[in-house]
Simulated assay, not measured.
Amino acid sequence: MHAVTSRAKWLLVSGTATTLALLPGTAFADRHHGGSSQGNYHSSGKQAGGSIESRITFSGSTRGGSGSSSQAVTPVGDWTPPACWYEPISARDFAKRTEASYDEVVNNPAQPDYAKAATGQFRDIYKDGKYKNYNLDKKDEGNWWVAVQDDNRLDEPGAWDCSELPFWVENGDTPKVKNAVTPQVLAELAYNRIQLPTTEVTLAPANTTKVNLPTWAWLDKAKFKDVSVTASLNVAGLNIQATTTAMPVSLKLEPGTSDAQTYPASGECAINADGSIGEPYAKGKADQTPPCGIKYLRSSGDGTYKLKATVTWQISWTGSGGAGGDLPDGTFGATQDVTVQEVQAVNR
């Protein structure tokens, strides 16, 4: 089991005509996205003084288990896990971080005037403007909720969907914004961090086969089992978690050429009752049809065919308070080289 902190940062967004997204730090760069002419700014590096790292932690199969390589689950369809979300921060921490960011920016000669002005405008809203002194006198009655972006997904349009300024939420109230952290949102974030160990399908004959000879394919249950990631958030009086579990349900074989026949004909090999897929080849089965496999009808010549094996995973989650449900299925695919040779005939 591995525990990791989310690679995500606090995102401050102003509501002025010129939208400014500010990640407190030492350097600002002009960014454009979605075809908009609005300028967006975020820091180019992590700074402990002003930057607030997400408090969400992840544990479980976040590194592909013990394998040397791994791959994330790819959702089926057009659904994607959130690339930004809202999470709470105490009034005391919000005040401390905002003041640190303000001092860091305005006292740095290298910062441009627009960055200093924007930082000052943001501070004024919460210190002496719409709110007074960061609501510190109400610190036991609620928390600030701030937008957070996933550092690994800043180039995705969804990373900019959380455009609300930090807002105050009384204890017991539900934030009225999309992607405010709940057990389900945590489950969706955990989905994006599931890492599966790279697994090659076992073939018989292995790697090199003959034209018109059925090639058996299988995945052993010991290497092909459920994996899960747990996301937890314990901050500002909010203590919730969710565990997202991926369960393998089928294997699809794509031979890498149209000159091939799959078993079954659909190329979809279902999971067996014991958790394996397919059936290992054994001596004496040469004339049998494999429950999962391929028959190549043409030689690969001097090259190889790229056999693609894609596993479909059924994704479910459970969370705090007995919550739970299903998330879109995911897939995980890998390719391997297969050499197909002609059967040599002997002329007498």
Rank of each mutant, 00 (worst) to 15 (best):
F332H: 12
P290W: 01
F94Q: 00
G67I: 03
K285V: 12
G158R: 10
A29S: 15
P290F: 05
D274F: 05
E200P: 13
Y126E: 06
S54V: 07
P290L: 03
T215M: 08
A180L: 05
P82W: 03
G325V: 11
E99F: 00
K9S: 12
D220W: 09
P291L: 09
N135K: 12
A72I: 14
Q184Y: 07
L23Y: 04
A72K: 14
Q344A: 12
I277F: 02
L233Q: 01
K308A: 09
V148G: 06
L307M: 00
S258A: 15
G120R: 11
P157N: 06
A190P: 02
S66R: 12
A21T: 11
L23W: 11
S70Y: 11
W145K: 05
G319C: 08
N347Y: 12
T262F: 04
G303H: 07
A345R: 13
G325W: 04
Q111C: 00
T182V: 06
A8W: 08
T74H: 06
T62A: 04
T57V: 10
T243Y: 03
D220C: 12
S300C: 01
Y102W: 14
E53V: 12
Q341H: 04
D173E: 12
L251Y: 01
P109C: 02
K308D: 10
D140C: 09
